[in-house]
Design a binder for these strands. Structure first.
Lengths: 229, 229
DNA sequence: CCCTGTGAAGCAGTTCACAGCG
DNA sequence: CGCTGTGAACTGCTTCACAGGG
């Protein structure tokens, strides 16, 4: 029952779910944001054209993307906003909360800890960790900073599934190893270095210096070019 | 002399430069990082295989990418590290400093202002801006926070070329408009919203909530999948 | 007649595999 | 003989264009 041929279908839990292309996955959060906005405006239905406008893409792409989730639209009308929002959330796996631990309590780590937008979107920050005795014991946003050695216990006790690395590059690989060993299931890193993790642990990278350098290229060329999802 | 057919060549300053594919551009900063490391280790030459290892990609991709910059390698030997570093920097337009203004002095804006890694990489932070009277006048890292109304004057006086938006989503479009009007030449936004800017202003987006949602998808699928450059 | 869903065409990026230079 | 540079094959993504349901 677990077909993989043509990598089109495979088993997820008990349900047989269509595989979604990477490019589409990276746009789903944008659609989700637009749908949340539409809900708050009391819009009941939305056309692919309108959703495309809100998401900053073209309508054909919206329809193709949504078609990977199933055929939820109504011809001549559009999509039911609330229903589509629920489907997008489910496809992204947002029906389950994913508790987060942040490792590295420098400026960036502290800013992330203070930022309220995570919990409200299903990613509650439940743990803060640092290696420095100066930082351990600090209370940030109601959470006491733990020592990195306490990571396995902390991940286990709080059911952490996502690790955020906001340490200097020099410490990042060690931290990544520790996170994986502790049982974290996916990692977001801000450290400007390449990290090695097992294939079973999805990893995403955010690097401001890299982004600025890319901008530098296109700016030098006289503009004309956007990127990122 | 300004060929555009096949979008392969076009004029940059006085030099005729090869056009570089978007995917390659987004990897150049990674190669750069690896090359900087190799220089600091005193390595004189590097093979595509070694560079690939450091950058976390495969060797064929490295060679193809570098071939867009010119043919700088030596068969049977590899690439001259220092020379290649200079070429990559030039391709990215890093030979000219790009002064940065940060708009939005909340947690993230302050963390960015404190982060030292910009100036050292050719992106000195020369201005900080906020709309709130609480923030205006604060001194952060030796720079006084200016009011947003002072943006045009500030951009002009300090030769700002890059704007970083670290405001809430609700203010972001206004800020983007103000930055463009003030003459900023490219924009990096952290606000979780779609921004409209002229084609002549390259724009890149960083959104942590989006990244977490993408991770959620792949984690739910039982790992196996990385992204981002 | 409007708007979705989707084959099919077109395009961009990746990987292969090897010719050719040092 | 090692390692680059690159056509060519391949894979995946985007865009087109239209059939067909409401």
């Amino acid at each position: 029952m677990t077909r993989r041929r043509d990598h089109t279908y495979y088993r997820v839990g008990v349900v047989l779910a269509r595989e979604i292309p990477d490019a589409t996955v990276s746009r789903l959060p944008i659609y989700r944001r637009s749908l949340v906005e539409l809900v708050s405006q009391g819009q009941v239905t939305v056309s692919s054209a309108r959703l495309a406008e809100l998401a900053g893409v073209n309508a054909a792409k919206v329809r193709k993307d949504l078609s990977y989730l199933g055929t939820y639209g109504v011809r001549g009308v559009g999509y039911d906003v609330e229903y589509l929002l629920a489907q997008v959330g489910e496809a992204l796996g947002l029906d389950v909360e994913a508790p987060v631990v942040i490792v590295g309590m420098g400026n960036l780590g502290q800013a992330l800890a203070h930022y309220g937008g995570f919990s409200s979107r299903g990613f509650p920050i439940v743990g803060l960790v640092d290696a420095s005795p100066d930082k351990v014991g600090m209370i940030i946003d109601g959470i006491e900073v733990a020592h990195i050695d306490a990571l396995p216990e902390l991940v286990d006790r709080l059911g952490v599934s996502v690790g955020i690395i906001s340490t200097p590059a020099s410490a990042a690989q060690q931290v990544a190893d520790a996170l994986v060993a502790a049982g974290v299931r996916s990692i977001l890193t801000f450290a400007p270095t390449v990290l090695q993790v097992p294939d079973s642990v999805p990893l995403r990278k955010v690097d401001v210096a890299t982004e600025l350098q890319i901008l530098s290229y296109y700016q030098q060329r006289g503009g004309e070019r956007n990127q990122t999802a």
